[in-house]
């Protein structure tokens, strides 16, 4: 079934969109880091340059991640609405909820690949730029893990909305709102970020300026994991209900 979901991605430009996201995150992150003067700090012993790169990656992912997720989810679900795919699967014994879960796994794999490849490519870029301080591997892994949770949690919500509401403008609109939340929720009290999956993007932000210097922030691993678990449970619950819904 998962193979079928990948086969359905053909001509939906899912691969191209994923590569575009990867390229734009890389370009935005490097561009923002350059704009913040990374070139002057390549030799700083405190890893100033790495911190800039990591912070720029988070900024780019916060902005682009929710949009990409909305587009991918809506495209992958819209084909079921248009092509009678829900009924086709149901008459083969595959319930709508199960189909949603399979879609989550297939699209989740694409998103996980994009987010981790963006991390690897930026680590490579930092190395090529000859940053002399040791690479903060664990900070980067920590950030990428939390960003992955944020991506998968919001993917679940987007998939459910796309499946429930046939007009995919609703799903795309939610994606835009999600990007807004991801980018700007740092300006609100921290607890607000825990209320939505998109808030987790901002919670995952690993570096921020304290005065004139970028500093590592303490990462809310437990809090984001709980949000992820709740999102996964909610997704399982709603798709279970889909399974019992009459066609």
């Amino acid at each position: 079934m998962i193979r079928n979901e990948f086969a359905k991605m053909r001509r939906l430009k899912v691969g191209a969109l994923a590569l575009l996201m990867l390229g734009v995150v890389f370009a935005m992150a490097v561009g923002m880091a350059m704009g913040s003067g990374i070139g002057f700090h390549l030799g700083d012993a405190d890893g100033y340059a790495w911190k800039l790169l990591l912070m720029s990656q988070a900024g780019a992912v916060n902005f682009l991640g929710p949009l990409l997720i909305a587009v991918l989810a809506s495209r992958q679900v819209e084909i079921e609405h248009r092509g009678g795919g829900w009924l086709l699967s149901a008459t083969a014994g595959i319930t709508p909820g199960r189909l949603c879960r399979v879609k989550a796994v297939a699209l989740g794999a694409v998103l996980v690949a994009v987010i981790w490849l963006s991390t690897v490519s930026l680590m490579g870029a930092g190395t090529l730029l000859r940053i002399t301080a040791p690479m903060p591997v664990w900070n980067w892994i920590g950030y990428t893990s939390l960003a992955t949770v944020a991506c998968l949690s919001s993917l679940g919500v987007q998939l459910l909305l796309s499946a429930r509401v046939e007009n995919q403008l609703a799903s795309l609109g939610l994606g835009v709102l999600g990007a807004f939340i991801a980018v700007f929720s740092t300006a609100f009290p921290r607890w607000i970020s825990y209320l939505t999956p998109w808030g987790c993007f901002s919670l995952a932000t690993p570096v921020d300026f304290v005065g004139n210097n970028p500093e590592y922030l303490s990462m809310p691993y437990l809090g984001v994991s709980i949000v992820g678990l709740l999102a996964a449970s909610g997704f399982a619950c709603v798709t279970w209900r889909f399974d019992r819904k009459e066609s």
Binding site: A7, R11, I79, R82, L87
Partner: peptide, 10 residues
């Protein structure tokens, strides 16, 4: 059942 199934982009 209902309209004929088929993924239009394939």
């Amino acid at each position: 059942i209902e309209s004929p199934p088929g993924y239009h982009h394939l």
